[in-house]
Design a protein around this nucleic acid. Structure first.
Lengths: 201, 201
DNA sequence: CGGGACTCTGACGGCACGTTCAGGACTTTA
DNA sequence: TAAAGTCCTGAACGTGCCGTCAGAGTCCCG
């Protein structure tokens, strides 16, 4: 305990600051998530954040990495455990919405960063690659289903973008409809895209 | 000409500034669309914009109104002219993508404003209502199809949000895939959502 | 006990942005 | 022609933000 108390404090602070950044991002939006505000949430000074993370960009980076890890851990194993592509697509949708329900604020924080973080002039945001990974993963499931004969012959990329677009529309709805039933929503999405992708009789 | 030259100049300047704001928003993104930059694009000073519009917020408001008018004019008549809900849904998707192809920069500018404009603390952005209108319009088409027996019994709001999410995912793709064929894309979307909504045999 | 490493504060500098304003050029009106 | 009105510029503000830094507090080790 004594030999590790220093790094223990360091790690504890980092975790606390990341958690507070997620809280502020989810509750007040990217534009209002200033260093001073995150610091106030953590009951420390703004300088302390720079001390631990070196700057705002690196803090954001840590937040994104943390939430991405959460999502990956929850989704990937469930998807890979399915025996058929149809069930894998179902697991993709269900585990994704499960993640939204169980980690509501981290999800909203991630969405704030990905959608509002300014990138280079006219180019994509710095975390566009994050979204690209989610799409290519989905494409793999779709390719699996087409090669196995479960799915009809659609354009894989277009279908992947369509499904992700539908899923990404959910967080905004969570903000405006407090009583939204995500289980029911998952059911509707599964039905919709099962019908849209299955091989036609 | 003399009696109206004053208001003529006024209107010409307003149109020019709106066009330049659209250009800058589409090319460089909301974060980089500063007053100075828009002014430089229009070869005037930043003060002139405040003179004609009273401030940045009112300029943005004018931009949104202009683009929304463009989109409505192109889509609504085509949708209402259809004899069945199935064809109306097809017209909704096709006319929406047509608008994206014919008015690429105004569309991208509108997306920039709607997605990046900061609103009140934690609340939705000031133009969230704009998106809400697009969804309720779509719900009307879906309700039409359910009452006529063309569509199966899905949750109208969920399906509307799903379709809009899929459509709203297109602009981001236009930025990253220059050679994207919007006609082919429209065809895929029509097929996908025709299968997803039609009454099951 | 005393030096050193770690942790944090509070204030300051610098920057980017939107807005305002006095004044000038030009046009219309009296 | 003179006065009034229109249109615009360039500089000067005020604001909000991030990053830095000297110094203080705390804990450990010699």
């Amino acid at each position: 305990m004594p030999s590790e108390s220093r790094t223990f404090i360091e790690e504890a602070r980092r975790s606390q600051i990341i958690a507070c950044a997620i809280e502020v991002l989810a509750d007040h939006g990217y534009a209002h998530a200033t260093m001073a505000r995150i610091a106030r949430q953590a009951k420390i000074s703004a300088g302390a954040i720079s001390y631990h993370f070196g700057g705002k960009n690196q803090l954001i980076e840590a937040v994104v990495a943390e939430v991405a890890r959460l999502a990956t851990d929850m989704m990937v194993p469930r998807i890979l455990a399915q025996p058929t592509a149809t069930l894998a697509l179902r697991a993709y949708l269900e585990s994704n919405l499960d993640f939204m329900r169980l980690h509501r604020k981290p999800l909203l924080a991630l969405v704030e960063v990905i959608t509002h973080m300014p990138g280079e002039e006219g180019g994509p945001g710095p975390y566009a690659e994050q979204a690209e990974v989610a799409i290519t993963d989905l494409e793999k499931v779709l390719d699996w289903g087409q090669r196995s004969g479960e799915f009809r012959d659609f354009d894989k990329r277009t279908m992947a973008v369509t499904i992700r677009g539908a899923v990404d529309a959910v967080p905004a709805r969570m903000l405006n409809e407090p009583g939204l039933d995500l289980d029911l929503l998952a059911q509707e999405l599964v039905t919709t895209f099962t019908l849209a992708t299955r091989r036609q009789p």
